[in-house]
């Protein structure tokens, strides 16, 4: 056996990364959050965060992120489950990921065309007799496109955990007379909960900070924390307020992490 030093050597690149690209940036964000727009030290940004405007924004961000995650999960789980049953499952999985390699802005523009007043979806609605609807710049289009973007990120971890599932367990449950639904509820789902969790993490947290889409697809009718941060950093140049919102996002993230981790014990 090697000595302790070489045994720990493998950790160096990762810890170095944490120091350089996580701790220092957090420190910078924290540092900036204490400065107002004119560069004076102040706690004003934190006060401002607790005004109705920002609290309302936080609430609505949570609501949309929750909706997006829930719908993604509802669609992604059966998809992943069905994919594991296909013949060339790894190929199909890759084909689920490929669309996300096309630039997001381009896809957003395509959705502008698809959902537009004279777009394909409206022509379709007309043909089936529902008639023209405003789809673009509504909550529906925003949630739809967001789910579209996050689906591959949700499917991947769920697929992996389903794929690892020991089939003999399922067979055993069946032999013991469990119905399909019971097998799923009592055996398959609990065993893949880790995949579901990491899927939800990589969906929910980024969904809180979506920006781009809030303008392109929701026409700024939806303002998330991410939109506000982007505005403060890029347009109003109020880095202090932007950083303050970021600090809250980081705190929320840590809380969510801790919550999902304690639940793990119970399973």
């Amino acid at each position: 056996m090697e000595n302790k030093l070489t045994r720990n050597l493998y950790k160096v690149p990762y810890l170095l990364w944490i120091l350089l690209f996580v701790i220092i940036p957090i420190a910078l964000v924290l540092y900036y959050s204490f400065f107002d727009i004119e560069g004076h030290f102040s706690l004003g940004n934190y006060q401002k965060f607790f005004t109705p405007v920002y609290l309302q924004m936080t609430l609505s961000s949570f609501w949309y992120a929750f909706l997006i995650t829930a719908i993604s999960l509802i669609i992604a789980y059966p998809t992943a489950l069905l994919l594991t049953k296909t013949k060339h499952k790894q190929l199909w999985l890759l084909l689920i990921i490929v669309p996300s390699w096309i630039n997001l802005l381009l896809k957003a523009y395509a959705f502008l065309g698809i959902f537009g007043t004279y777009g394909i979806s409206n022509s379709f609605l007309k043909v089936i007799g529902i008639g023209q609807q405003q789809i673009l710049f509504t909550d529906f289009s925003f949630v739809f496109v967001s789910v579209y973007i996050f689906i591959p990120f949700m499917i991947l971890p769920i697929f992996n955990s389903l794929n690892e599932l020991n089939p003999t367990l399922v067979d055993a449950a069946k032999d013991l007379g469990a119905s399909k639904w019971t097998t799923f509820r009592r055996v398959i789902f609990p065993l893949t909960i880790d995949g579901v969790k990491s899927g939800c993490q990589v969906t929910f947290i980024p969904a809180l900070s979506l920006f781009m889409l809030t303008r392109l697809i929701a026409g700024n009718r939806v303002i998330t924390l991410g939109t506000a941060i982007e505005q403060h950093f890029l347009v109003t140049q109020d880095w202090g307020m932007g950083s303050t919102i970021a600090v809250f996002l980081i705190i929320i993230m840590v809380l969510i992490m801790l919550l999902t981790n304690t639940r793990k014990r119970g399973v």
Binding site: V22, I205, G242, I250
Partner: peptide, 13 residues
């Protein structure tokens, strides 16, 4: 938690 900071942080930050 450190690991996830960059996932949660908005790209702009």
């Amino acid at each position: 938690s450190f690991n996830n900071v960059l996932i949660v942080s908005p790209d702009v930050i």
